[in-house]
Write a protein that binds this DNA or RNA. Structure first.
Lengths: 151, 151
DNA sequence: TATAAATAAGACAAAATACTCTTAAATATT
DNA sequence: AATATTTAAGAGTATTTTGTCTTATTTATA
């Protein structure tokens, strides 16, 4: 599994928020229903994204979470790093600590390129970009496809 | 962590064997010492690689494991798939089951490209290729760099 | 044929990840 | 002010991954 489950859930949640472009708070309960993710687990993940300043939360009635900035200004890499950590893009393929240009493993150069191409892809893809694509093509965001983009 | 720890250990072990080009059995005890990987854990991993027909094992004195074919004919992808499974290269980035061209998630196309580039890199890199590079440039295969390629 | 050297296999333990539940704190609304 | 709604936080459970230990089983060699 390239990305952790938490990370995948975080991405789905972020996309959900980006799709409902209005800057209103969305309750975690609603999101967990729509995205079919356990409420409490999703809450923890969103807390991580809030701590990373990607989202803002608000307690009380009509509270919830929302993106801290426009979805067009949040790229997937931010979500991934907030949850799985930046090490994901510096780690050695052979697990050697401190692997780098000065003290490389045999796979270092090649792996670094691969890692970078993943990172670049995530950097160049914004939440809005994907959300628009999802809306326009009516793609799914849940296993059963029960999700509707204009909710 | 993009690859599991088991997978990373499997790659190191396979490289070790490819470096000692002679087709003799190498004991797991020796490998575990040289590579600084727990003996029993390494044994399990090598059993997976043996079950996948990438290695052959032999019991008794002078027994051990060896590559089932020349290292130049084994690419990294074979080791990775034997341990982490082929799903690694078909899985959806958003965790949706059955995500594919017919029923894609918003990230499908982009992710498929990224996944493929990882896969191609692993396909195009052989054990011998890396082992030779390691030998020639005296790169490390262990955390402390204590490994010597001609052992 | 006895012995020692090696892998095989399975039970077990520890750690990390994934997930649940309960209680607290904040806040909008009546 | 009371209440209902919501996130925050932390304890607790389950599952998976990682790692250990013990007991076979095979086999080369003396």
């Amino acid at each position: 599994m390239l990305l952790s489950k938490s990370c995948v859930y975080g991405l789905r949640a972020a996309l959900y928020l980006a799709a409902g472009n209005n800057g209103e708070y969305v309750s975690i309960g609603k999101m967990s229903e729509r995205l079919d993710i356990s409420f409490h687990f999703l809450t923890k993940i969103l807390q991580q994204l809030t701590a990373a300043d990607l989202m803002e939360s608000h307690k009380g009635p009509n509270g919830g979470v929302k993106l801290a900035k426009p979805g067009s200004e949040i790229s997937l890499i931010e979500v991934v790093i907030a949850i799985d950590g930046a090490e994901l893009f510096t780690e050695c393929a052979l697990g050697l600590p401190g692997c780098g240009v000065e003290k490389p493993c045999p796979l270092h150069d090649t792996w670094a390129e691969t890692r970078d191409s993943i990172r670049e892809m995530l950097e160049n893809t914004t939440l809005t970009h994907l959300a628009e694509k999802g809306k326009n093509m009516n793609l799914r965001l849940t296993a059963d496809g029960g999700f509707v983009w204009d909710g």
